[in-house]
Amino acid sequence: MGLEQFKDRRVGTQNYKKLDLDHAPNCGWCQFKQVVSRTFKPELFVGLWVTFREMINALFRGQMHTTQYPLEKLPISPRYRAIHDMLRLLESGHYRCIGCGLCEKICISNCIAMETRYDENQRKEVSEYTINFGRCIFCGYCAEVCPELAIVHGQRYETASEQRASFSLFEDMLTPIDKLNLQKEYDGFGAVSPNADENIKKTPLAY
């Protein structure tokens, strides 16, 4: 199943069929005629046929709608804001986070805590990074503000766990180094929009 359905935001432009409500019978004879016509019209059997057809479709033509959830999952929108992911640089495998602390500052529920220090190369290193998911409201500001797209929202929406800490450590959120080739570039909240190239203009310096 593709994502077209989810991406289509044109709410309200669908083709609605309006019910024809103008033909209410107003005399006894008209009512009687309506009853008789409704009785002998095969509308009820059309209803029966519709359900029977759906059953045939479901059973023999592979149109069963059920997603057997724990075994198969529906794709979710890239803009979905679930448990955070920390991404790595594809070239070096080093984590992208530069320890600027913007996410910690902007976090409106104060759930991000980070500590940084200088490593032996005098580069900034993240020594401690946790997100308290008991407080996080998944607003997405951290992903939006991150200059490196290091912290992003992932697709892990099943957040049941024995303890909160299961998701919240830096190492847990970081892409595993052996799965670096599977890391996908984030196109959700805070990422560069897909049509960014079209929006580039020359800087107006004429004035």
Binding site: F52, E54, M55, N57, A58, Q63, M64, H65, T66
Partner: peptide
């Protein structure tokens, strides 16, 4: 089961 099939669901499984 029958109601599920008619609504294109699987029913008890």
């Amino acid at each position: 089961k029958v109601l599920a099939f008619m609504q294109r669901r699987l029913g008890p499984q």
